[in-house]
Design a protein around this nucleic acid. Sequence first.
DNA 1: TCTTCCACGTG
DNA 2: GCACGTGGAAG
Length: 540
Amino acid sequence: MLQEKVSAVTDGRMSRVQDAIQPDLLSQEPRPDLSTAPTVPSASEPNQNIENIKVVLHERELWKKFHEAGTEMIITKAGRRMFPSYKVKLTGMNPKTKYILLIDVVPADDHRYKFCDNKWMVAGKAEPAMPGRLYVHPDSPAAGAHWMRQLVSFQKLKLTNNHLDPFGHIILNSMHKYQPRLHIVKADENNAFGSKNTAYCTHVFHETAFISVTSYQNHKITQLKIENNPFAKGFRGSEEADPRISRLQGKEYPPISKNSVRQRLISSHNHLAGKLMTGHPQVLSSYQYEAGLPLANSDSQDPISNHFPPSRDPGLLYHCFKHRDNSRHLELGCKRPFLETPSAVSEEHYFRSAPSYEPSLLPRPYHNEAFSAREACMYGGMEAESGSGAGDVDDVNHSPPMNRSMWATMPPYPRYTVDGVAYQPFAAHFTNTAAVTPVVPHPASTMAPRPQSDLGVFNSAPAQRGLPVISPPPSASSCAPATLAPRDRSDHAGPYHKKPGSPPRPHRDFSAYPSQGAIREPSFQYQMGLNSTGTHWNDS
DNA sequence: TCTTCCACGTG
DNA sequence: GCACGTGGAAG
């Protein structure tokens, strides 16, 4: 039943999505006409009804709590995990078909925010989008049976504000609003994607949108993190007395640090405010989605929506797409640009996402690289790879190692990257990691910390490395984004040339591709975009 | 605003 | 016992 509904729904959405997407993809270029764009995957493909895949966000209620308060995610130079973690339950996949799951985090709008008077306010124009990176789930590629077997967790994904991050973490600007997106890509025969007929779907849960910060602004969010994140248990205590604080201060009783006081006040305030706020939660949207309803977005009012921009959609948006052929196909070859590590390492994929604010979404595969994943996000450890893919969970499903490709999504803004700089991903910066191999990237080797990449972040930087690039498909453009980017980059600025350095394993490079991004798609905009206006999350 | 260090917790 | 994830405080 649900499925039916879902399907139906999805279909609807999908088409929209496509439309939307296309634009993105194209965005840069003249966008072909959307109409042209094939709708969803027209391609025929064997298996896949990627569009029939259902994705349920795990712990949605928790996400909603955060969303209602205006979710904030800490970003640090070293990389910080997201909390709540992005975990999903998948159903409707072809058990034998291999899929690659990846997440990208795109700007939700083009504003910079500030937290004043206990609420988020627009504080100017957004900084240029950072090089978009994609975080590929370490188990990728894996068969549908594998993905459906248990929750798929992206908890190891890390966010950073270091534009030169060598670890493959997702790079964001502080005080900006972002929207994580899940992309399910059907792996091709080479365990890569990007080839013709590559089909993929993008799912967006609006309740996972957040504002990146270097320190929490809204006390309510801090409290939610402390109350729900096991690693923050040390800060739990009665509200009144934060044990930890006490300790720090050496007092038994709650110290009243300015913060604590402030927090308390705020929290009270928030509560009231919250109640006052609107009334409805956007929850509906989510639910709708789940229900399979189309989104109706009712939400305009949704408080949350307000907080975050726009997306109105129901909780999720989804796009499905199939590449058309020509276009792009990525090759996955596996090359690991940076990584040298040969075999040992597994490959990771780096992707770049597009910066668009919205929805651009589509990933475009860039090229792949291999790498190993070290940590498996999901199940525990997996590495998948080693040669093959991750082995995590079951290996059965796993496919062999995949190549990691990079995708670039479109950037919202044309610029992307670090200001045009050629980004050198990893290598350059490795400074810290001295250990890391300097120059060339070795993937596996030691790198200091493990990059997310392990996880699978990719950047795109294909060209430079010689990675396979995707060829751009002309028409595809409309549809398939992926292609475009890659080439562009290479051609154009080529932002990233990789320099000699190599990043640690993980990431290989990233070229940043800018995807462009802005979305124009109706749907999308519809979703997200909107709100810029207010944006206020005020939580309170 | 951001970075670094800290104590404490999980796993 | 160790590595690492946390938010707070101090800088």
